[in-house]
Design a protein around this nucleic acid. Structure first.
Lengths: 168, 168
DNA sequence: TAAAACTTTCAATAACTATTGAAAGTATAG
DNA sequence: CTATACTTTCAATAGTTATTGAAAGTTTTA
């Protein structure tokens, strides 16, 4: 397979994967493009490579910075901004986990804690089923939270050796 | 807080969470409703509780069955179908992991394996950056796949005791 | 077999999300 | 200071995905 074909396939695949994770297609594609690019790219470069408008490119580059997946890079003697992606995939994965934990797991935990206080007659089936579901979900979420935290604190070496050894 | 208010908040929250995981809102809401329901519910019940049309209720109930998150239940002397959700949250989590692995990770692995064969001049920066990104991503994906597999094979006891102990 | 009770389908449409591109904003260079 | 090179915003619009509801399909009952 030739490089151009491979690039296109990868950008396409990464975009599709993004969609099923609630990440907009263009954002995932910009990320893919930067992941495989040896040089930092300008907004203009992104617009050209992906055939998107200036506004779209700009908005998704900013969103990626917001997620901590890419960063601005200034080239001496250049006025425009260039962008590079973090290339270490384990760091990328950790960053995504960190952000989603903050954006989704933490708010959900707060809601579940609130919902544990639903009151109702002691023998009421409805209330009991509700309370039990919430309690179980809360426990699982807490465990997931702790596990993720530990993973995030671990360095790559730990993940690759100890954890993987345990996992076979 | 009263039961009705709690139910609504939970259904709403679960729906929102679903959206950010690429799951359609109604599907997540139907799931939430069944999770907290002590009895099996009919299509009609779902339509009423969530204010959605028959077609919508039917389609999302089928999708949930497809995901293995709910099942049909037949009541003696009743002609309609009723639906119950799996209530054990660890089983639910495992099932979601299993399905997403099948639907997303496996196809991605296949694409990455294909993309590792991109050819190019040996000193070409573009090709080298591409190959390296693909190789790293492939390695990480393989590791994730193995880890998930091991988790899925493990029973709850293992997860809750050994693994959680390790994780503190 | 026919009517009733229920489920499924699907074309039309509504609702939502992403994208464009021109205009406004900002920073740098001369 | 002001012209230029760039970035950001945002209202309009395109594109996508979800929802409706009536019609078709299926199974059960009598």
């Amino acid at each position: 397979m030739q490089l151009e074909e491979g690039k296109e396939k990868f950008i396409q695949a990464w975009g599709t994967l993004g969609s099923s994770w609630g990440i907009n297609r263009t954002m995932a594609q910009v990320h893919a493009l930067l992941l495989i690019s040896p040089e930092a790219l300008s907004t203009e470069d992104v617009m050209q490579e992906l055939n998107v408008s200036r506004g779209n490119a700009n908005m998704n580059l900013r969103a990626l910075i917001d997620w901590g997946l890419i960063s601005k890079e200034l080239k001496p003697g250049e006025r425009r901004e260039f962008f590079v992606a973090e290339k270490d995939m384990w760091k990328v994965a950790k960053q995504v986990i960190r952000e989603r934990r903050k954006r989704e797991l933490e708010p959900m935990l707060r809601i579940l804690e609130e919902l544990r206080q639903v009151e109702g007659a002691k023998g009421d089936k409805e209330t009991e089923a509700f309370t039990e579901a919430i309690t179980n979900l809360h426990e699982l979420s807490l465990k997931a939270d702790k596990t993720l935290n530990t993973m995030l604190r671990a360095d790559e070496h730990w993940f690759l050796s100890s954890f993987m050894k345990l996992m076979r």
